[in-house]
């Protein structure tokens, strides 16, 4: 295993850990955090085949969702992996620390059929966005209807946010979201979000789930 302290998250250069520990306004309308180093695995396969779903379930404990734009798995990141629907034959598995190489077992389980398991952990940054005005911030740059009648917890969507392509996953109704964005766009999107959230007041957090004030999952900064 390589030396973890030599690794850098996509937003490492912004010094968010330091900013999060500074005195910040408690009455922020928007809370933002980077969720670094969580394992992301691209999964391709024929979702209409029960054997495929079962093979995945055997390894991960959950089957890939077949309903478009939904997520299976626990709400809390710490409780295990989640699977996001990206396409009729494409999913994103999220969970665990990237250097634990979690996709190996899955690759093995699917090795006897036409499927692809690709480690894409480093391909995207994950930004957690929550707070009473989180939805308003997203509405400034996202054409999706995010009203609770149209989009709620457990839903995900690939869409456009400002000028970046993103995967948007609503975690809970507070509302809190996780935004997956290609690594090279992370600096742009973070800057855009902070700018757009300015009128509501922004607090930088170190935790993907700021509600309980704990560092989420097995993620370490």
């Amino acid at each position: 295993m390589p030396d973890r302290y030599r690794r850098q998250s996509p937003l490492a250069h912004l010094g968010l850990v330091a900013r999060a520990s500074e005195d910040q306004s408690a009455e922020a309308g928007v809370v933002m955090a980077e969720c670094p180093f969580c394992a992301q695995t691209g999964l391709r396969g024929d979702g209409s085949l029960a054997r495929f779903g079962n093979a995945v379930k055997t390894v991960l404990g959950i089957a890939p969702p077949t309903e478009p734009n939904t997520v299976t798995g626990p709400e809390d990141f710490a409780d295990g992996a989640r699977i996001l629907w990206l396409g009729p034959d494409e999913w994103l598995i999220v969970g665990g620390d990237v250097d634990a190489e979690p996709s190996g077992a899955l690759r093995l389980a699917l090795s006897d059929r036409h499927a692809a398991v690709v480690d894409v952990s480093d391909g995207r940054a994950v930004i957690a966005l929550s707070g009473p005005n989180a939805r308003d911030v997203l509405a400034k740059g996202c054409p999706l209807d995010l009203h609770p009648r149209a989009f709620g917890p457990g839903r995900c969507a690939q869409t456009v946010l400002a000028k970046a392509h993103v995967i948007l996953h609503q975690i809970d109704a507070s509302p809190s979201y996780e935004i997956y964005v290609h690594r090279s766009f992370a600096d742009y999107l973070w800057s855009w979000l902070e700018d757009a959230a300015g009128e509501f007041g922004v607090r930088i957090s170190n935790s993907r789930s700021d509600r309980n004030g704990l560092l989420g999952g097995r993620v370490t900064p």
Binding site: P143, T159, V160
Partner: peptide
Amino acid sequence: PWCGLRDEVE
């Protein structure tokens, strides 16, 4: 056909 009605920009 999979995601339903979406904006042209996508």
